[in-house]
Amino acid sequence: MDFFLELFLSGLTRGSIYALIALGYTMVYGIIQLINFAHGEIYMIGAFVALIVAGVLTIYGFSGVSILVIAALVAVIYAAAYGYTLEKIAYRPLRNAPRLSPLISAIGASLFLQNYVLLAQTPDFLPFPMLIPEFAFMEPVAHIMGSIELVILITSALTMIGLTLLIKYTRIGKAMRATQQDMTMARLVGVNVDRVISMTFIIGSVLAAIGGVLVASYIGQINFYIGFMAGVKAFTAAVLGGIGNIPGAALGGLVLGLSESFAAGYISSAYEDVFAFGVLVLILILRPSGLLGKAAKQKV
């Protein structure tokens, strides 16, 4: 039973990170039908910025939790700036181009950012400080669930609740929903569509950066390439849940994380990726538009 619980919790932790990143993919896709392949790199940049800030703060003698909060804030701001700029430079000029063009541009942006970090920082793995302290009250259950897992679960849950409230109850949320339903119509009724799209990228990047900081302090190491695999997994989660659908991305992330964890635990960790992508194939066969996706209507 312990073993099952352990696998369940580590799957949940993993899944909530996938979900955080997947939200960025799905929000962007929902609005402009673009798969933002550079999203994983935003996550990676978030982790790098946090590392640099944490390093500087450590020199100035800040303590654990304050470093975490400040580093995460700076990382979020930086990532948001990157997401905003990325959209301005790489996607906005191609808004009315054939759909393949922004996709190529996205892949280019991803390679650019990866290589930029590779050259500007280092090709090696860098140690990431353990910013999240070990809570004493977690000690009796530490072998099942550590303090870091707890922090990850709570943070991602809060972030997702926040996002839901933002979309449901704020002006910009309403504008986003309107743009998602029909961009032309939204523009006609006075929604500033460009601003909404920028805002979508900013929110997605913020979520990715939070995920990046959490993961980096969870596994303790980062390099320029971590965004790639995380991006692929999160994209998978988004597709699994039904791309364009926000609760779907969260659900897809959790399903993916749990199936990986159980596959690693009960079958073999050598096959965790095989199993994860096997689940994706299976679900897409049974429900081609994903778990919560609506069947695509053919627009004439």
Partner: peptide, 20 residues
């Protein structure tokens, strides 16, 4: 005797197996 996936986000499952 098990392979792990390099670059995976965590190895908790395999660590739990070591314990089990």
């Amino acid at each position: 005797f098990e392979g792990i996936t390099p670059g995976a986000m965590d190895y908790s499952a395999v660590v739990q197996k070591i314990r089990r």
